[in-house]
Design a binder for these strands. Structure first.
Lengths: 197, 197
DNA sequence: GAGCTTAGCGACCGGTCGTGCTCTTTTCTA
DNA sequence: TAGAAAAGAGCACGACCGGTCGCTAAGCTC
């Protein structure tokens, strides 16, 4: 059971790439099969249906997100260092790792937010987990710790800046987007850690 | 040439509704025709092709956006009143006017940002125009006017908060999203108008 | 290396896609 | 009100969609 797993991984890789470009629904099994060097029917030895593949794509994207953003940050001291690392890797994820297609998590969010089903539920669960982790990190940003409300507000702004950067760069062609986001985030950290309880 | 225009408007209305739900590519001419009470071929008396309809949808969405956000604000005194009005109407636009589907401009942005062609170009042009208008409004927020850089940074954050609210509410089910966005924006206005040159 | 398991192929299914064609009905205009 | 012009129906097309089936060939285990 080794060759099979490798092939499945290749299929998923390609499907994820295409989903980032055209959305989950826009992925054609024919195109995926061709790109991987398989026949269409060969795909069905690895996935029961297209929705099954959708689910696997969501899983793969969120796994990779964790690996590239959460993991490296978790090895730093809590608070500001971690938050800065997360933000930096997050921007990087949108900007470089998916340069041709834009952040797949944003794409999936917009596509799935009104489309009930297992893919949406999985994405929702993973994003909630990430939110919780980061919000907790905000709590320990100041010595008398932030209130839950404050931490949530900070996370809201942090994610907003990531979304803003992605939108500005991709849709508006704004080359300064990253600097704008970075500056806004640093200011947010300053404000948040300075503010009195 | 009156009945025709009315029918075309109805078609566009429905196509826009569906595009907000499933994206431009996801719109089925069959479904649109059926919903409007026409045959599929009847549609082609009003649009040369599907891409032609895509373009008209983008035009309609951005026109309505102007009408609902820019127009009411333009009747207020410049500076803070206008900015607050724009932000409030903008959030409203995402939250209510497209309650079931999410802000169509975000949807279109994500879908079109890597899809060259007339629809993308039109959307890009309209969004640039809007950005310019709002950025100019930021300039007159303070007596010694903001620098271009400051105004652009402020617009970046403003748009980020709108994106953040839409994402938080739709994908994360965050009922407080609007309040978070509103608070963040008010704080942004305070900071921006207070900051020394 | 025999034998079971699994990966993969090719043909094919019913259905839907966007689009062209011809023909009829409705609407507008002079 | 007659006649031109526009609106729309009906149908058929070729391409493509996700998916099934039976078969072969390769891989894995003992």
């Amino acid at each position: 059971m080794k060759k099979g797993e490798a092939t499945k991984a290749r299929i998923l890789e390609e499907a994820t790439r295409q989903a980032a470009l055209r959305g989950l629904t826009g992925v054609s099994l024919n195109d995926v099969a061709e790109a991987v060097g398989l026949s269409k029917s060969g795909l069905f030895k690895h996935f029961e249906s297209k929705e099954d593949m959708h689910l696997a794509v969501v899983q793969m994207v969120t796994d990779r997100f964790s690996e590239l953003i959460r993991l490296p940050a978790s090895q730093l001291p809590p608070g500001r260092p971690r938050l800065e690392k997360i933000f930096e890797r997050w921007l990087q994820w949108c900007e470089d790792d998916w340069a041709e297609s834009g952040c797949p998590i944003m794409q999936l969010s917009v596509e799935l937010d009104d489309q009930p089903g297992p893919p949406r539920d999985l994405l929702h669960k993973q994003l909630q987990g990430f939110r919780k982790t980061v919000t907790r990190e905000f709590l320990s940003l100041r010595d008398p710790p932030l209130s839950d409300r404050e931490a949530q507000a900070a996370y809201f702004q942090m994610k907003s800046f990531v979304l803003g950067q992605s939108d500005a760069r991709r849709m508006m062609g704004d080359a300064d987007a990253r600097r704008s986001a970075q500056a806004a985030f640093e200011a947010l950290l300053d404000r948040t850690s300075r503010a009195a309880a």
